[in-house]
C-alpha cells in the first residue's frame, strides 16, 4: 500500500524538479561563478537529492535568487550559509557544517586511516616478535641439522 502512495509522491517530486526557467545571472562573472560554488552546496528542498545548481524546481530558482542577492550584497559565505540554515534548517546544506554534532561524520575517515595504520603497525611488530622468539621444535631442529650440519649457534 505504502508503495502505491509513494509513487505519485515521487512523480510529483519529479515534476516539480523539472519545471522552471533559469533566473537572471549576476552581471559580474566572478560573483556569478562564486554563486555557483555556493549553489552546489545547497540542497533543493523539494527535490529528491539535488543541489539548487542542478534543479529546475521553482523553489531552487527562488533559492538561487536569494543566494545571488546575498553574494551581490557582498556577504561572506559563512553568513549566507548561516542565513539559509536559520531559514530552512541544517537540511538545506549538502555540505554538512563542521560542528561538534558532525564530528563523527567528518573525522571518522581519517581516524580509520590513522587508527588502521597504527593497528597494522602494532600487529606486524607483534607477529615479528613472536616469529623471532619461538624456538625451533625438535622436528625443525632435526631438519636444520640435516640442511646445515655445521651451523654455528647464534650468540
Amino acid at each position: 500500500m505504502a508503495a502505491r502512495l509513494a509513487r505519485p509522491a515521487l512523480a510529483m517530486a519529479a515534476l516539480l524538479c523539472i519545471a522552471a526557467a533559469p533566473t537572471e545571472a549576476l552581471r559580474d562573472p566572478a560573483q556569478e561563478a562564486h554563486a555557483h560554488v555556493l549553489f552546489r552546496q545547497v540542497r533543493c528542498l523539494v527535490c529528491q537529492n539535488e543541489s539548487i545548481d542542478d534543479s529546475e524546481a521553482p523553489l531552487a530558482a527562488d533559492l538561487r535568487a536569494l543566494v545571488r542577492q546575498q553574494v551581490a550584497a557582498g556577504r561572506a559565505d559563512a553568513d549566507i550559509r548561516a542565513f539559509l540554515v536559520k531559514r530552512y534548517g541544517e537540511f538545506v546544506l549538502l555540505k554538512p557544517a563542521f560542528s561538534a554534532a558532525n564530528a563523527l561524520l567528518w573525522l571518522t575517515p581519517f581516524v580509520i586511516i590513522l587508527g588502521g595504520g597504527a593497528a597494522i603497525g602494532l600487529r606486524r611488530r607483534d607477529e615479528r616478535g613472536r616469529a623471532a622468539e619461538r624456538p625451533l621444535d625438535a622436528v625443525e631442529e632435526a631438519r636444520l641439522a640435516v640442511l646445515a650440519p655445521t651451523r654455528v649457534e647464534p650468540g
Binding site: 552546489r40 552546496q41 540542497r43 537529492n49 543541489s51 534548517g89 541544517e90 537540511f91 538545506v92 546544506l93 549538502l94 555540505k95 554538512p96 554534532a101 558532525n102 563523527l104 561524520l105 571518522t108 575517515p109
Partner: peptide, 24 residues
C-alpha cells in the same frame, strides 16, 4: 557508508535533519 547513513544517525541523536551531499 557513514555519509549515506549519517543523516539517520544524526536524526536519532539530536532530532535534526541534515543532508550529506557531494561536497562531503
Amino acid at each position: 557508508a557513514l555519509g549515506t547513513l549519517y543523516p539517520l544517525i544524526r536524526q536519532a541523536l539530536t532530532g535534526e535533519a541534515i543532508s550529506v551531499g557531494a561536497p562531503y
